[in-house]
Amino acid sequence: MPETSAAPRRPFDWFALLAVAVTAAAYVRAIWFTPPEMLQGYAQKILYVHAPSAWVAFLAFGLTALAGAFWLFLRDPRLDRFAESSAEVGVVFTTAVLVSGPLWAKPIWGTWWTWDARLTLTLFLWFVYLGYLVLRGVIPERDARARLSAVLGILGALLVPFIHLSVYLFRTMHPMPVVANPDGFQMPPVMVKTFFFAFFAFTLLYAALVRARYAFATDRDALEATLDATPDGGR
């Protein structure tokens, strides 16, 4: 009977708890302590989920592409694990953007969906990174998986300006950013504070999720390495 040792238990993930607590606090502030917008009413509160999710989605995919580019030169498995984790978390946040957007658009624009530049760009980024995850899933060898997905991640980043530009020429009706507006802040300060609080909370949440997903990838790779080293494949 082979000797089995219990996997070492990870210490409790305090960072994840903190991220969830801060996100919860941002929601509480957005729902109860921020007044509804004058024209859009309660629908406007979706902004506090929608915009931070979009920021995190783009951050996640940017970092995935960057980690892939660095992997091609450094060949460090940690970079690949990070790219994998960031892409997966990015898809989750992109899904949040694509769900929260139509929920807001229906009462405000009167339609669930419109082929506006930013909507289309987000949708196609979602497709690109779903493809990225599918590609990772069908390549069993770790090095080939890292290499090919790095190439796809980098090309995906190159694609962003082209989709944006072409759909922008097609037509656009997305509200222009109301916070970083050259004419000065148009949102009242209490909303701006909630807005930035939500950005901070979601960024923290992204870091916590990637951290947890990264830990999983490390464990999985270690397990695979152990199984490969065992003569009968661990069975």
Binding site: T120, F124, F127, V128, G131, V134, L135, V138, I139, A144, L148, V151, L152, L155, L159, F162, I163, L165, S166
Partner: peptide, 22 residues
């Protein structure tokens, strides 16, 4: 890229079509 995988004929359009948009 997809020639390295088991499901090349399915994966190629899934990966390529978003890039064909622009």
């Amino acid at each position: 890229i997809t020639a390295n995988t088991r499901m090349a004929e399915l994966l190629l359009p899934v990966l390529a079509i978003p890039f064909f948009v622009p």
